[in-house]
Amino acid sequence: MKKLLTIFTTAALLGSTMVMAAQQSSVVQADIDAFQNYFKKRFPNLSLNDFSKGPYAMSEDKKLQFDAIMEFPPFEDLRDKGEALWKKPFKNGKTYSSCFSGADKTIRTQFPRWNAKTGKVETLEGEILKCRVKNGERKIGSGKGKLAWISAYLTTIAKGQVINVIVPEGDEKALAAYNAGKKEFYAKRGQLNLSCANCHIDSPGQRIRGNTLSPALGQITHFPVWRGKWAKKKGDGFGTIQRRYGGCNKQVRAKPRKRQRDAYNNLEFFHTAMSNGLEISGTEYRE
């Protein structure tokens, strides 16, 4: 009887572990390996985590400039405001934390994730926005401002956490969302007929006017970013990854998609999965 009990308990435990930790789709893992190997071969002197520094990893001079700026980051006060907002209770007494599971520093790497119930990809910024509405707070912008500050705070405290986006094996809908994001990344669009891949896979390290193109690998590790360009325009310089997607689309003269909708959420799903294994480097400065 004892033996039977032990077997049942072990089986139940193993079963629950399998449910808790869904296995990565083999198709997606093959994509990740091919993607990362391409960059490793192309830039043999860079370690995996070096890619999170983007263009700064490819030029010593640029890296020095970056390090100098990051000594006293120009966005520190806004990130602190983000922390204050995160901790400030809503009118109903609850805080943002009530909408998320796990310790605050692990929240950043939980997203983007697949929600099998809704059949949709969930993003960190999308969940923050939903959390506000759920708790009776008014809506806020989806690309910059308060949302980006809060997200920047969560990214900063997640420094060192490893990205691990899972597209569950055998979940056709999840794979379809991943593939939609993949297509969004590789399809040429706009009047200039350029895809994300044309710049960030074919040409990283090369200059486009005054800027150096960053590699697609590791781009996701430091968002939201504070950009000098955005600080000059209307706004405080902060922007989410989906704001950046919109900017890239505009630059190739394509109509940007709406933020926190399927197209960009799926793109974020794919884009982040490609950087699986890299560490979050915290919110950073970019040109």
């Binding site: 399809a187 669009r189 706009g190 009047q191 003269r253 394509a254 109509k255």
Partner: peptide, 9 residues
């Protein structure tokens, strides 16, 4: 189709 160009509007 998701391929609208920027300046049409």
């Amino acid at each position: 189709l998701g391929f609208e160009w920027r300046d049409i509007g």
